[in-house]
Amino acid sequence: MPPAQSELLQGTLDLLILKSLASGELHGMGISRRIAQITNDTFDVKAGSLFPALHRMEEAGWLTSSWGESETKRRAKFYSVTKAGRKQLHSESERWERISIAMACALRAT
């Protein structure tokens, strides 16, 4: 991944995780696949970045988890968004909307 994408990913990983879980629970690698899908394969989140973020977000109260069985019949931890996580998703989404509008304006400026 080019450096610019890596920096952006670190700054937006929580938002991407919350967004990927907004429609229902997923296990870790399912979250990674969903992020790739919703970003048109712009972001490929590796386990070394994903799992520490999931743990941190669970500690913050934005996610809950439970053990279950994956589609490959392996034991996996499934994550879902809490009420606090949905609130965080909403506020971060609004913040990124404002940022992206401002950046679009700045890039069009002469």
Rank of each mutant, 00 (worst) to 15 (best):
H90D: 12
L26Q: 02
D44E: 12
Y79S: 05
G24W: 13
A104Q: 06
K77L: 15
S23E: 15
P3H: 10
L18W: 03
E59K: 15
H27Q: 10
A76H: 06
K83P: 03
G28Q: 06
F43G: 03
L107R: 02
H90M: 12
E69T: 15
I17Y: 02
M1K: 04
E69N: 02
H55Y: 12
L26E: 04
I17V: 11
M103S: 01
T64M: 13
R108K: 05
L9P: 10
L18K: 05
K73W: 02
S23W: 08
W67Q: 14
I31V: 14
I35L: 11
T72C: 05
L18G: 05
Q88C: 12
S66K: 15
G61K: 08
L15K: 00
L9G: 08
Q88K: 14
F78Q: 11
S70H: 10
A60W: 04
Q88L: 13
L15T: 04
M1H: 02
A36H: 01
D44M: 04
I17E: 11
Q88G: 04
T110E: 06
H27T: 04
H27S: 08
E59G: 06
L26V: 09
D14K: 03
Q5W: 04
A109G: 05
E7I: 10
A102S: 14
K83M: 08
E58W: 01
L26I: 09
E92M: 15
A60Q: 13
K87Y: 06
E59A: 13
A53W: 00
T82W: 08
W62T: 02
Q37Y: 11
D14Y: 01
T110M: 04
G28S: 13
E97G: 08
A106N: 11
P52V: 01
S23G: 12
G11C: 07
L16Y: 09
K19R: 15
M57W: 04
H90N: 10
A104C: 01
E94G: 11
L89K: 09
P52Q: 07
